[in-house]
Design a protein around this nucleic acid. Structure first.
Lengths: 203, 203
DNA sequence: ATGCAATGTTAACGGCGTTAACTTCAGCAA
DNA sequence: TTGCTGAAGTTAACGCCGTTAACATTGCAT
């Protein structure tokens, strides 16, 4: 479709890009369809030709976020199991720190009830899958315990997700040397927190 | 102040209670000052005599939430270090599951930028303190490693917070037997995830 | 060339948070 | 007792917002 004065021709893309920029800079609550249309130079209802409503637009942005996160996780070196697991954790938290507003949109839960946007669920699952694959890999190599995969994966994901959330919301005081904290925490999950000179590991 | 037809006399309390009920049932995005005032039977600007704006009202609700969470955590039996730590984790996740909407308000980060409401920050810290005390206790009893307290505490909090968030947002498939999952994950953080017949614990 | 479907437009509805300006009333000082 | 004051309520209004209905333009396939 060519671009005339009337038919914009690239509205979906432009709306997506500019909305993404706003979310990244100011958070999803700053997204207003009227302001967005104004900024693009188009009437507000025109946006409804491409997005069912405000939430659907936000869902698309969240999908972008999950895809980016997945790429970051895929880039982690998988040679050594231990460094792969720690590396995934670091990459995960680093993404959240680089894109806090996008991360909040992706995991806010407030805006997007699960199940309402299947493609969003799928994108989240795809990112999660990278983590699960890494855990499964570590298990197959005999590095990780033979505990249920779902349990190990849930633990890993909970840890990095919780740390990300607490970090970007400023709940953890003195978060200056962040990567070190993330690495230390991940190591704790691997090695355990109990003092082994006093207690035996659970059988 | 007595209650006449004009002066309501109990508006602050009523607004707090009814708003809390709405948040618990429908989430904070369902809070509208106009609707709330209508429901109470008062004009909208009357609310502004007691709350600076919508966000301040939400902040008060979040404070309530943190206080409740703190009470739940304080009720955990502290006799045995291990069961105290696991118990705290279970209580934490249980609270999130019982009050998902309130929990999202407390930790959403979207609504309430840290530092804007000092009393809210303080309430969050007080809840966090219970967890930190439990960890410190476990350390003093020699049950936990002598790692930096901040590190151990951050790990514990990240884990339970992440699990809570993922659980209430439905990111973890097959979350039927939830307490079991939470207990298993907490145990993983205590005992470690690596297979010790193959690898030595990190020195 | 024509008709259709996609993609725009304007106009309007009802809701929202917030503020300004005014009113009522409880409690206290003279 | 009277009169004042300040807290706590009121109405009216501003400017946003998401969304829908009804209509206009246009590219493309027939």
């Amino acid at each position: 479709m060519a671009r005339t004065a009337y038919h914009h021709g690239d509205l979906y893309q432009q709306a997506h890009e500019q909305a993404l920029a706003i979310v990244r800079e100011q958070g999803d609550s700053a997204i207003s369809l009227r302001a967005l249309a104004r900024q693009i130079g188009v009437s507000t209802p025109a946006l409804y030709r491409h997005y069912a409503d405000r939430e659907s637009l936000l869902a698309e942005l969240a999908i972008s976020g999950f895809q980016t996160l997945r790429q970051h996780l895929l880039a982690v070196d998988q040679q050594d199991s231990r460094s792969a697991l720690i590396g995934i954790g670091l990459a995960y938290v680093a993404f959240a720190r680089e894109e806090p507003n996008l991360y909040r949109l992706m995991f806010g839960g407030r805006v997007l009830p699960r199940g309402a946007h299947p493609r969003l669920d799928q994108a989240g699952l795809a990112a999660f899958q990278v983590l699960e694959d890494t855990v499964a890999n570590g298990q197959q190599r005999g590095y990780l315990k033979a505990a249920p995969l779902a349990l190990l994966t849930a633990a890993a994901w909970s840890l990095v997700h919780g740390l990300s959330q607490l970090t970007i919301d400023g709940h953890l005081p003195g978060h200056d040397n962040e990567p070190q904290l993330a690495a230390g925490i991940t190591a704790l999950l691997l090695d355990g927190s109990i003092e082994r000179s006093n207690k035996e590991p659970t059988p």
